[in-house]
Design a binder for these strands. Structure first.
Lengths: 214, 214
DNA sequence: GTCTATAACCAGATAGAC
DNA sequence: GTCTATCTGGTTATAGAC
């Protein structure tokens, strides 16, 4: 079930090709919305990419705005599945290692998920205010509480847990969002598997030290 | 002189009001380009904000694309002035403290400069490829060399200097780019002066520890 | 359900008066 | 230099054939 809406998806004999088409459309739409922006994205151009008539796209998703919302929703669902759960019963070193590694892997494997989300937030979170106010705020407070618990037990440095979460988010997502800049600076055409490993090692190491866990 | 172009600006008796108008237009345009995206931004809406006829804006900047480029250029110039110089003769602790503090101050004082830049990079750096390939790449390599020098002297932890620079960029700019998300999560309407101080303290402290400088 | 053709709209750019 | 009025092109969305 989705995070943004609670609607049910009907399954009938047509739904296989339709679901298949919808997947392809969402992927193409995400690329188009990222490179051209919301207004700059044209439904025609998305239709061309998936080789379907423009009217079909609008038939599936009603209009451009709903298509964009579907892209955002799919992104949030993807993240929700992927984000490692920080368990109060574990120890902080283990939790941070898993959290950082998960976020780095996600940034390299699905950079577009991070990008479309970043674009939306930078432009003012118009479509995600409610999601942020309810779901994300609760998530941050819950995790911050766990970190604070560990701090109170003297298990890690006495630092602001919320700022720690922001630092982990930003430093990991940077490799997705600023991909084009990083590749150009390093004079490379694309990321390699070794980059994922090196960045994970660097960030876990650095952040653990910042938390006095190493 | 600007980073992107090397053109000269003529100064005559009309240039005072013209320069004044251009400043206002660029500020309004930056806001419009951020909230609406490049294609979504309308010259009419920028004209309305500065209370000038649309044709005047186009007369000043020739066309929408050149106006956007002027906004980017102004942003880069602003950053260039602001970014603290890391001096090879100084010590790493001092350099990082100044660098982090400068970036945090800039993020809180001029969030829109960071936002318009982030939007451009996330969307593929189309207009900044050349700037990144030449100017920014050289800047990163030069600073990385200085860090490496300090590492070789055993003055700080043996970590990848380029990844350290990326971490400082991302963790500081996050407070500008993700402003809307951070404020919503913390249930606040806007940043306060105390936030600048707290974030600066948190980040310098954390990063210095990551570099084994504390 | 699918697709073609078209309506209705809006934006950038410019011609030309002042 | 400044501004009004207009042209032109491209977009979403829909009506209606298949």
């Amino acid at each position: 079930m989705s995070i943004l809406s609670k609607g049910k998806t009907k399954i009938n004999k047509h739904s296989i090709t339709r679901a298949d088409n919808q997947e392809k459309i969402l992927k193409a739409a995400r690329e188009e919305f990222i490179s051209q922006g919301y207004k700059g994205a044209s439904v025609q151009s998305i239709a061309d990419k998936v080789e379907l008539p423009k009217a079909n796209i609008l038939y599936y998703f009603d209009n451009k705005e709903k298509l964009y919302l579907a892209v955002l929703e799919q992104t949030l669902d993807m993240w929700d599945k992927e984000i490692d759960h920080i368990d109060v019963n574990g120890d902080p070193k283990d939790a941070i290692e898993k959290f950082v590694a998960g976020k780095v892997r996600m940034s390299f494997k699905e950079p577009n998920a991070s990008k479309i989300y970043a674009l939306e937030i930078i432009q003012g979170s118009q479509h995600l205010k409610e999601y942020t106010r309810t779901y994300l705020r609760a998530w941050v407070r819950e995790k911050a509480k766990i970190f604070q618990h560990w701090i109170d037990q003297g298990k890690m440095a006495d630092i602001d847990p919320v700022k720690l979460i922001f630092l982990i988010w930003s430093s990991t997502q940077h490799y997705a969002d600023f991909e084009s800049q990083i590749l150009t600076i390093m004079n490379r055409a694309e990321y390699e598997e070794s980059d994922v490993i090196e960045v994970t090692e660097f960030l876990t190491d650095f952040i653990l030290r910042g938390c006095k866990l190493k």
